[in-house]
């Protein structure tokens, strides 16, 4: 234990998990830029108690839990801080006008159609590849709820018009 280097352990973990965490954050609904910020925030918070995280029964579940909590908090805070304006805060991407709808857009929209809890369970289970048990731990819900949400999310995705509208063969 005396040889254990906390910083080295942390940076090792971060290097290994960084891509998956960032992409998970994108799938949870962040832009890539926001996702990197979110993951940095989550990891920095984990670092504060890294000795505890490192000794946790399931480190990934712990980190994803912090990530999801940070994401939830960010969404909540942004909403509550909304201010009315006559002016658009951003202009649409010029590429949008071309009406390009591809698999990425379709999946992105399909995920966007899921409620936040359903989306989170889908991302953690099917992208982060957490087990049902880990997903339950990460989200702080019972395993049975993970199962029921996955079931409902899959049904919703199956019925999603954006995915259904994809030309044959576009599904991976």
């Amino acid at each position: 234990m005396g040889d254990w280097d906390e910083d080295e352990d942390f940076t090792g973990y971060m290097s290994a998990r960084w891509p998956a965490l960032v992409r998970s954050a994108v799938l949870l609904g962040c832009t890539p830029q926001d996702a990197e910020d979110l993951v940095q925030t989550a990891l920095a918070r984990c670092y504060v108690s890294w000795s505890k995280v490192a000794n946790a029964d399931d480190r990934d579940a712990y980190v994803y839990r912090v990530l999801v909590n940070c994401h939830t908090d960010t969404r909540r805070r942004r909403w509550s801080g909304e201010r009315a304006s006559e002016h658009l805060p951003e202009q649409p991407d010029p590429r949008d006008s071309e009406g390009r709808v591809d698999v990425t857009d379709a999946v992105d929209r399909a995920l966007g159609a899921l409620s936040h809890p359903l989306r989170a369970v889908v991302v953690l289970r099917f992208y982060a590849h957490l087990s049902e048990e880990q997903t339950a731990t990460a989200l702080g819900i019972p395993r049975g709820t993970v199962k029921s949400r996955l079931s409902r999310a899959l049904a919703d995705l199956s019925a999603n018009k954006h995915l259904a509208d994809l030309p044959d063969g576009n599904l991976p």
Binding site: V26, E36, F126, L154, P172
Partner: peptide
């Protein structure tokens, strides 16, 4: 199929190197 869809979408997200030093400093 759901996993493949998400892999497809996630795989298109460009991710830079982990900013280990920056996160460490923030932590």
């Amino acid at each position: 199929e759901a996993a493949r869809l998400l892999e497809n979408l996630g795989g298109r997200v460009p991710v830079g190197p982990a900013p280990a030093n920056e996160v460490l400093m923030t932590g």
